[in-house]
């Protein structure tokens, strides 16, 4: 399997469809629409990459997720803002201790998951925002090893949480109850099948495969659920100083990667030979 770049969305600038200072997070909904967060703003691009809507958040957006009902959850420092499909703010969950810095949001059957990078753990809430349990917190190092400053995870169709643990060079599998099921990945400095550097992968997305991004040198890769490398999506387009590149996959198999220095979303399409 190989990938080719089909589109670049955004870029650094002050135009409505561009990002002025930051691009931190991506999410795609069931219709292939792309939500991109940065500059304390959420931008909605349609499936063809045209800007459809943009609205502000009260704090810088660190993470985005779209629920099954079309509600948009925006993770921020100290809070999660929930918008309805029309970009109207419907709720705000606040909590300095449980939501220190929300760098990832996901959904399981009856709950909401939030990755708190300030405490290096994933929080499990019910749909009303009531705290249930920690995920990934109870280990010798008291959480995920994230020198990169981002807890990122994705939830697969079975409700299993795939969380990046960059300091261990692993993507770990957890149940929503917090039980560790296993992991994929190992360190390797030269083999593309391994994760290089001090702490990789930084970000993860899941659909039929596990999609990850790495920093230094930046690249996006695809693994199957057994940890076998399927493809290197790309590495050349990204700025070498990129780090914590958010990744998202839509139903068509398109891979969206946010370049945090160029402030652009690179869209890749799988090519079947």
């Amino acid at each position: 399997m190989t990938y080719r770049q089909i589109r670049v969305i955004g870029g650094k600038g002050n135009a409505p469809g561009q990002f002025a200072t930051s691009l931190r997070c991506l999410a795609v909904d069931a219709h292939g629409q792309l939500f991109a967060g940065g500059d304390s703003e959420i931008k909605l691009f349609d499936a063809a990459g045209r800007l459809k809507r943009r609205w502000s958040t009260s704090r810088p957006v660190l993470s985005l997720a779209v629920a099954g009902d079309g509600a948009v959850y925006a993770g921020q420092p100290g809070q999660i803002e929930i918008f309805d499909g029309a970009a109207k703010l419907v709720n705000t969950w606040r909590g300095e201790t449980l939501l220190g810095r929300v760098t990832a949001i996901g959904f399981v059957k009856d709950g909401v998951l939030a990755g708190d990078a300030a405490d290096r753990a994933i929080r499990h809430f019910d749909r009303t925002g009531k705290f249930r349990n920690h995920i990934g917190k109870h280990n010798p190092v008291n959480g995920f090893l994230i020198p990169n400053g981002v807890v990122d995870f994705a939830v697969d169709a079975q409700g299993v949480i795939h969380a990046a643990n960059p300091g261990k060079h692993r993507v770990e599998r957890y149940l929503p109850t917090g039980e560790l099921l296993g992991h994929i990945g190992r360190f390797h400095g030269t083999d593309p099948a391994g994760f290089g550097g001090c702490c990789n992968p930084t970000n993860v997305a899941v659909r039929d495969h596990i999609y990850v991004t790495e920093k230094a040198g930046p690249r996006a890769k695809v693994y199957d659920f057994n940890g076998n490398l399927q493809a290197v999506v790309a590495s050349a387009p990204f700025d070498p100083n990129c780090k914590n590149m958010s990744v998202a996959v839509d139903g068509r198999g398109l891979v969206y990667v946010a370049d945090t220095v160029k402030l652009a979303v690179f869209v890749f399409e799988p090519v079947t030979v």
């Binding site: 090893l145 020198p147 300091g167 261990k168 060079h169 360190f187 400095g189 030269t190 290089g196 550097g197 001090c198 702490c199």
Partner: peptide
């Protein structure tokens, strides 16, 4: 310091 297990300044990470 990130106190990493695999420190690129300590190890030659491409070895």
């Amino acid at each position: 310091c990130g106190r990493c297990n695999i420190c690129p300044a300590y190890f030659n990470i491409t070895s």
